[in-house]
Nucleic acid binder design. Structure first.
Length: 154
DNA sequence: GCCAACGTTGGC
DNA sequence: GCCAACGTTGGC
């Protein structure tokens, strides 16, 4: 099973937004970065665990837990001229961009702020610390379980 | 609002 | 294929 961290600006799409969706599921669309695309298309599988991270706010933090419910498939918003992340180079035959579907599991009892992650000896290898701009990040099982403990889960 | 990091674009 | 210019992200 894989472990991942997905970033989102809560003003755009928050963990609470995800929880409020039918069945708490949503398409994770709009990713327009090739490295993140490769993870979405090739590596992220149903059942993988995801940490939901809120970025670009005064105290950025991991706030909730999700599970992947559908593996990568073409992100049709790239084909829609009226969509925010329209890409004129994408076609139905060569969609370029991919998305997965995720389901919210639960909010962490306590948010885990970036400042805490930076200082924790087991977490300094997380991409958040060195590659903060990558929007879909692979993490280890140890990093995942450590964040859960910091967030108040057994 | 600033700035560092880094990804993308385009000229050659 | 290189590299400078430019745009975006995201922490502070």
């Amino acid at each position: 099973m894989g472990y991942w961290l997905f970033k989102s600006e809560p003003g755009c799409f928050s963990f609470q937004d995800l929880q409020s969706r039918p069945n708490a599921t949503e398409h994770w669309d709009g990713v327009r970065n090739f490295q993140a695309r490769n993870f979405l298309r090739d590596e992220i599988k149903p059942g993988d665990r995801v940490l939901f991270y809120h970025s670009s706010i005064p105290e950025p933090a991991v706030v909730g837990l999700c599970t992947v419910v559908r593996e990568g498939y073409p992100d049709h918003t790239a084909l829609d001229p009226n969509a925010d992340h329209f890409d004129p180079k994408a076609t139905p035959d060569k969609p370029i961009w991919y998305m997965v579907d995720v389901r919210a599991d639960q909010a962490l009892p306590a948010e885990v702020p970036l400042a805490v992650i930076r200082e924790h000896p087991l977490l300094t290898g997380m991409p958040l610390v060195n590659r903060s701009r990558l929007s879909i990040q692979p993490i280890t099982e140890e990093q995942y379980t450590t964040i859960l403990q910091l967030g108040g889960l057994p």
